[in-house]
Simulated assay, not measured.
Amino acid sequence: MSATRLLVLGVVRTHGTAHGYLITSELESMWAQEWAKLKSGSIYHALRQLAKDGLMRATQIEEWPGRVDYEITEQGDAEFLRLLREALKRPRSPSRSAGRRAGPAHGAATRRGRRAAEGTARRPGGGA
């Protein structure tokens, strides 16, 4: 099963019509690049391949040179549902979750990393 295909089909299905930047933004807002190891290049490749396979319809937007809008086809909708059922049936392998942190500790680590990146990290001893 291709997680990229499932996610891209799902975003386009949700929006009805979407372009590559919107799809990439939506998936980044879900942190898909972390948990699904998605890269923007693989999203654009998936869009072209899905259109080539007849699972999406691609339309060039004349007013915006270089912009292509995608719409899911009936076959694409069926493929999305098939991939979703397959993903929901498949048990998560223990090796994939081994060593991953979950729960509040992971959230705290993420917040610390974000603060550090923003320059607002708290210093030991309670200072900001």
Rank of each mutant, 00 (worst) to 15 (best):
R13I: 06
E86Q: 03
K52C: 11
T24W: 04
L84F: 09
S40N: 10
L27T: 08
T24C: 10
S25Q: 13
I61P: 05
L22H: 12
K39M: 07
E62N: 13
S29V: 03
T59K: 12
Y44F: 11
G54Y: 05
S25Y: 12
Y70V: 01
D53I: 00
A58H: 03
S25V: 09
S40R: 09
F80G: 00
Q49K: 15
V12F: 07
I72M: 04
E79A: 11
Q33N: 13
W31F: 14
A87Y: 00
H15R: 15
E71K: 04
A46D: 05
R57V: 12
L55F: 07
V68T: 12
L81E: 15
A78H: 05
A36C: 08
K37S: 14
A87V: 00
G16P: 13
T24M: 08
Y44P: 02
G54F: 04
G66F: 09
K52A: 14
T73G: 05
L47T: 06
T59W: 06
S42T: 12
K52H: 15
E79F: 00
A87C: 00
Q75D: 10
V12H: 06
W31T: 11
D69T: 06
L81T: 08
A46W: 01
S42N: 14
A58Y: 02
M30I: 02
T17I: 15
Q49Y: 11
L50E: 08
P65G: 10
A87W: 00
L27A: 09
G16R: 14
A51I: 01
A32D: 01
G76Y: 02
L84D: 03
L84S: 04
H45C: 10
A32Y: 02
H19S: 09
I61K: 11
A58V: 05
T24N: 13
T17V: 15
L47Q: 06
Y70I: 00
A18E: 04
L84T: 01
L22N: 10
E63D: 14
A36N: 08
R82K: 13
E63G: 10
K39N: 07
P91T: 07
W35Y: 13
E79D: 06
Y21A: 15
R90D: 02
G41T: 10
W31Q: 14
H45Y: 14
L88C: 00
E28K: 09
A36E: 05
S42P: 02
S42F: 11
A46E: 05
E74H: 10
L83W: 01
A58F: 02
R90E: 06
G16F: 15
A51K: 02
M56F: 04
L88N: 00
L83F: 01
Q49D: 13
L81H: 14
T14Y: 12
K37Y: 08
L22C: 12
I23A: 08
E34G: 07
E74W: 04
F80T: 00
K37F: 10
I23H: 08
L88V: 00
L22W: 10
R57N: 12
I43M: 02
D69F: 02
A18D: 07
T24F: 05
L55V: 01
E79W: 00
W35S: 13
L55S: 03
K39G: 10
A87F: 00
G16D: 15
Y21S: 13
A36K: 06
I43N: 01
A78V: 01
R67G: 05
V12L: 11
K39V: 07
A58C: 09
E62V: 11
E28N: 13
M56T: 02
